[in-house]
Simulated assay, not measured.
Amino acid sequence: MTDILARRTLEEPAVEQAIEDLHGVLDQLWHDAAFVPAMDQMAFSTAVIEAASNVVRHGVAAQGSELLLGVELTVASGYLRAVISEIGAAPLDPVPDLEGPDLTALPDDALLEDYDESGRGLSMIRALVTTVTVERQGDSNVWVLSRDAGEGH
Rank of each mutant, 00 (worst) to 15 (best):
D3H: 08
D3A: 08
D3F: 05
L5D: 12
L5I: 13
A6C: 12
R7H: 10
R7T: 15
R7E: 15
R7D: 14
R8T: 15
T9I: 13
E11K: 13
P13Q: 11
V15P: 03
V15E: 15
E16C: 04
E16Y: 11
D21C: 13
H23W: 08
H23E: 07
V25K: 11
L26C: 07
L29R: 02
H31F: 08
A33F: 00
F35Q: 12
V36T: 05
V36E: 05
V36H: 02
A38R: 02
M39P: 09
D40H: 03
Q41M: 07
A43T: 10
A43F: 12
F44H: 02
T46N: 00
A47M: 02
A47V: 00
V48M: 03
V48A: 00
A51F: 00
A52E: 10
A52Q: 05
N54P: 08
V56E: 10
V56R: 07
H58K: 05
H58Y: 15
H58L: 07
A61W: 09
A61V: 15
E66C: 14
L67T: 14
L67A: 12
L68S: 10
L68W: 09
L69C: 08
G70P: 13
V71E: 12
V71G: 05
E72R: 15
E72W: 04
T74Y: 10
T74A: 14
V75Q: 08
S77G: 10
G78D: 10
L80I: 05
A82D: 01
I84N: 01
I84H: 01
S85P: 09
S85M: 13
G88S: 08
G88F: 10
A90D: 06
P91K: 11
P91C: 09
L92H: 05
L92S: 06
D93E: 09
D93L: 07
D93K: 05
D93C: 08
P94H: 00
L98H: 00
E99H: 14
P101N: 13
P101L: 03
D102A: 04
L103P: 00
A105L: 14
P107W: 09
D109E: 09
L112Y: 10
E113C: 09
D114I: 04
D116L: 03
D116N: 08
D116Y: 01
S118G: 07
R120I: 01
G121W: 00
G121M: 05
G121P: 01
L122E: 03
L122S: 01
S123G: 14
S123A: 14
M124W: 01
M124P: 03
R126H: 04
R126K: 13
V129D: 12
V129Y: 02
T130P: 07
R136T: 05
R136I: 06
R136M: 05
Q137C: 03
Q137T: 11
G138A: 13
D139A: 07
D139R: 13
S140Q: 15
W143S: 00
V144T: 14
V144P: 03
V144L: 04
L145T: 05
R147N: 02
R147A: 06
R147E: 01
D148K: 13
G152F: 02
